[in-house]
């Protein structure tokens, strides 16, 4: 029998970090992937419970560990949240088409994230910062429902120090929040970039992606340079189970990152338009 593409390999959870009240970042070791591209995903198994797809949020240059930020939602994510450091979980991948890092070379970059949608963008940010000389300016617009739901807050300072132009917003302010209040589209005009030649990557809830795409075009960003990462239920990650087959695309094989023009061709429901 050929290699069983459905069988995960066991790795250990070596660190669990509380990211927000409903999201934890899990560090897995060893990193069994020879390499992966930012924006790719993996299937994680809680043995005896089930399996689900998750974006890899760690740096592709970290050869020892893989990281995943996981929000408590259903049976698999709840079981992962119950896990302790040292426990074994299953992993297989990397799967899908990630962010277009080649096309981004030599150009300025805008990343737009919403909530946990920053996870696949974090992997990209870490990739870009590692190769800073190959890219132009890097701006990030990131929003969450409230300040406590902002992901990776303890890393923002480091990103800014290394040259990221970071703009934050929350839907509802709380505590000592002094930043912008409003949805992420209200801060998209803040980064001062050559909009016609900037590559934009976005990930977040579908409704956010819809309005971000609209706003980006209004602001003069070129449709040719806009990409979004979409999400779907998946059972295999390798184009066999049928769950993520929409229109002519499989989210697992052809995505999860899609070009603006490709999203226009996706059927209603999965298309952000």
């Amino acid at each position: 029998m050929g290699l069983n593409p459905y069988a995960p390999k066991p790795v250990r959870i070596i660190r669990i970090k509380d990211e927000t009240p409903d999201t934890k970042t899990f560090t897995l070791s060893p990193n069994l992937f020879e390499s992966f591209a930012p924006g790719q995903f993996a299937m994680l198994t809680v043995y005896g419970v089930g399996e689900a797809p998750f974006s890899i949020c760690s740096s592709p240059f970290d050869k020892d560990r893989l990281q995943f930020s996981i929000r408590r939602m259903g049976s698999v994510t709840s079981a992962i949240h119950e896990a302790s450091e040292g426990e074994e979980i299953g992993v297989r991948g990397p799967y899908g088409r990630g962010w277009p890092v080649k096309e981004m070379e030599g150009r300025s970059i805008l990343l737009v994230g919403g909530g946990i949608g920053l996870a696949p963008l974090r992997s990209l940010i870490l990739h870009l910062l590692e190769n800073k000389n190959n890219y132009g300016e890097i701006a990030v617009c990131y929003g969450a429902r409230s300040p406590s739901l902002l992901m990776y807050r303890d890393e923002f300072e480091e990103w800014i120090r290394r040259g990221v132009d970071l703009h934050l917003t929350v839907d509802v302010g709380e505590g000592d929040w002094k930043g912008n209040v409003g949805v992420v589209t209200t801060i998209l005009d803040k980064p001062k970039l050559n909009r016609a030649d900037t590559v934009v990557c976005t990930c977040g809830p579908p409704v956010m992606i819809r309005f971000v795409l609209k706003k980006l075009v209004e602001l003069g960003y070129s449709k040719e340079n806009i990409y979004a990462s979409l999400e779907s239920k998946m059972k295999c990650g390798v184009g066999k189970c049928g769950h993520c087959h929409f229109g002519r695309k499989h989210i697992c094989l052809d995505g999860p990152v899609f070009k603006y023009s490709e999203m226009l061709e996706l059927p209603r429901g999965i298309s952000p338009f």
Binding site: Y47, G48, E51, A52, G74, S75, S232, C241
Partner: peptide, 29 residues
Amino acid sequence: DTEDHLEKNVYVRAKGWDTCASPVFTRMA
């Protein structure tokens, strides 16, 4: 679709026929 369970201290995953007519076929957690 897939289904995981514990059987005599061994973890088992089974796969079985699914249908796109099911209201949970594409519904995410």
